[in-house]
């Protein structure tokens, strides 16, 4: 080879690189962009919430949180979550099981119906309930005759939250169960297990992390829902205010520090949810990795 060939050769081989690897500067830039984005839209707001919450001092924080109206809001939020989470978890498991393991008429309709709350604006969801159960609504007169209050009372809030958090567990479990297939359950049956035994010993344990994950998301949404609840609640202080609604009221009355104090409780919930979610994803990933490697 000539002299120039050697020079060209050495230039090409000077930086030996895997064809599929990105250059380091590309990797670092992208990571930096992602981190900045995260810091700006996630980290900063959280920081601001906690900073403002404690800005008027720890006493003020304590007062804001132990105010009767605030306590009532916290109680209501917990009540709504306590009702919505188990109900929608049970519904989600049942629906996912039917959809994943069976074929039946109306299956597609059910799948679409489950996705409905995601497609509809929460405010519209709330409005639907008002149109159904409100005084001028479809069932209004009947409810009034029987002395049942749904709208502007706790039942309405629970119903609206149930509707909004409908899909969470189902959407999480359907692909999981579909992927697992019916064979393990059939094996359990052929070995003599009853329907319940099959469900408790085989079906549930197989989806336990997906289920927990769905419940965590469900809980977060149940506690933090604003739009739909706002429409149906009537904002009666001390009676039909959940925590998010209470924060709004305080903020509108220029009690900024108090508003942020209550909001910080919700932010704390968000952080705990994120940690749980991260942990569960890690556990699911580990099991999937073990299954894939086998």
């Amino acid at each position: 080879m000539s002299e120039s060939d050697w020079t060209l050769q050495s230039m090409i081989s000077a930086s030996p690189r895997h064809a599929a690897e990105d250059p380091p500067w590309a990797r670092r830039t992208l990571t930096a962009v992602a981190l900045v984005f995260l810091a700006l839209f996630l980290g900063l707001p959280l920081l601001v919430v906690f900073a403002h919450a404690l800005s008027a001092g720890l006493d003020s924080f304590g007062n804001a949180v132990s105010d009767p109206a605030a306590l009532s809001a916290i109680r209501l939020t917990l009540l709504v979550a306590a009702i919505s989470v188990p109900l929608n978890a049970v519904f989600g498991v049942s629906a996912a099981w039917c959809i994943a393991k069976f074929d039946f008429p109306g299956k597609r309709l059910l799948i679409t119906a489950i996705d409905l709350p995601f497609a509809v604006s929460p405010v519209v969801s709330g409005l639907v309930f008002v149109l159904l159960f409100g005084a001028q609504g479809l069932l209004g007169p009947w409810l009034q005759d029987h002395g049942i209050r749904i709208i502007f009372a706790v039942p309405g809030i629970v119903l609206a939250t149930l509707f909004i958090t409908f899909p969470f567990v189902a959407r999480e479990l359907i692909p999981l169960m579909q992927e697992q297939g019916p064979e393990e359950e059939q094996a359990a049956l052929s070995l003599g297990a009853s329907g319940w035994q099959m469900f408790w010993r085989v079906t549930l344990p197989n989806v336990r992390f997906g289920l927990l994950y769905g419940i965590v998301l469900l809980n977060a949404r149940a506690m933090g829902e604003f739009g739909a609840v706002s429409v149906v609640s009537g904002h009666i202080r001390g009676r039909t205010n959940t925590m998010p609604l209470h924060v709004e009221i305080l903020y509108n009355e220029y009690q900024t520090a108090a508003a942020f104090a209550v909001a910080s409780l919700l932010a704390l919930l968000a952080l705990v949810t994120l940690c749980l979610k991260h942990f569960l994803e890690w556990r699911m990933g580990r099991r999937q990795g073990a299954a894939d490697a086998a």
Binding site: E183, E184, Q186, A187, A188, S190, L191, G192, A193, S194, Q197, R201, V202, P205, N206, A291
Partner: peptide, 26 residues
């Protein structure tokens, strides 16, 4: 009847022992 599936259908979250013991435990 004892049925052996094409892709085994072993209970993935149970040990070998628990898999074999399943029929007796239920």
């Amino acid at each position: 009847v004892g049925f052996v599936f094409q892709h085994y259908a072993l209970f993935r979250h149970m040990s070998v022992f628990e898999n074999v013991a399943f029929g007796l435990r239920v």
